[in-house]
Design a binder for these strands. Structure first.
Lengths: 109, 109
DNA sequence: CCGATGCCCCTCGCTTTACGATGCCCCTAT
DNA sequence: ATAGGGGCATCGTAAAGCGAGGGGCATCGG
């Protein structure tokens, strides 16, 4: 994977992932990796700052919880209503992006 | 347009644009902007360093020419055979990227 | 009982890269 | 001669993903 390729699209991926249900860090990384057949292998140094950004913007909400099977408390993130709105906006923005790229490189309109 | 959205995809756009014929800076900016209905409005500070990168990698070749209608000589860039190969590779990489994103955000596979 | 291991969360510094501003050059027009 | 415009180039800035490192808590093995 190319790191630069991900810039500007990470927030969309995170919001979309949390749209399918609350998760904590490790789960997000695993799920994204699974959903992309291993193409996106997000690192912790990428994920946590991004989550903090999104939380500061009010799009997601993090809360420490202790899992049933014990272990250290994990920080579970949930998509807020505002975040759901933002997700829709980001989907549209991504759509405009892909259309624009197709306009240049050709291929199915 | 979001600047970050373009990161990692600019080279593809430039190679694809030059694949349709040699051009100089101003033309590239105008053509990309036209092909994307104004979505990508590249700036000079973005374009020229990118062109230099691509030339240093041997993907394109720039040469000063004087246009028929006079004026200062312009630097016309041409896609090299190596660049054509690279364009194919970049198209595939972009395709993998979009497939991966769709895998996360859902939508038509 | 105690150290080792394994997750999980967080942060710092680095690198890459698009962008805005600025400047120079050459040519044309007034 | 002077002003203007198009084209090329560069410098400093900012954003963001990444790698490395560290701390906390729980479980496991000796």
């Amino acid at each position: 994977m190319d790191a630069q390729q991900l810039k500007g699209h990470l927030d969309l991926l995170l919001l979309a992932t949390l749209d399918t249900g609350p998760r904590y860090g490790g789960q997000i990384i695993a799920d994204v990796q699974a959903s992309t057949d291993g193409y996106f292998s997000m690192r912790e140094g990428t994920l946590y700052p991004a989550l903090h950004r999104l939380e500061k913007q009010g799009f997601i909400h993090g809360e420490f919880q202790t899992l049933p099977r014990g272990g250290s408390p994990v920080k579970v993130y949930t998509l807020t209503p505002t975040g759901k709105t933002e997700l829709t906006a980001q989907r549209e923005k991504y759509d405009r992006f892909t259309r624009a790229v197709r306009g240049v490189i050709g291929g199915p309109a």
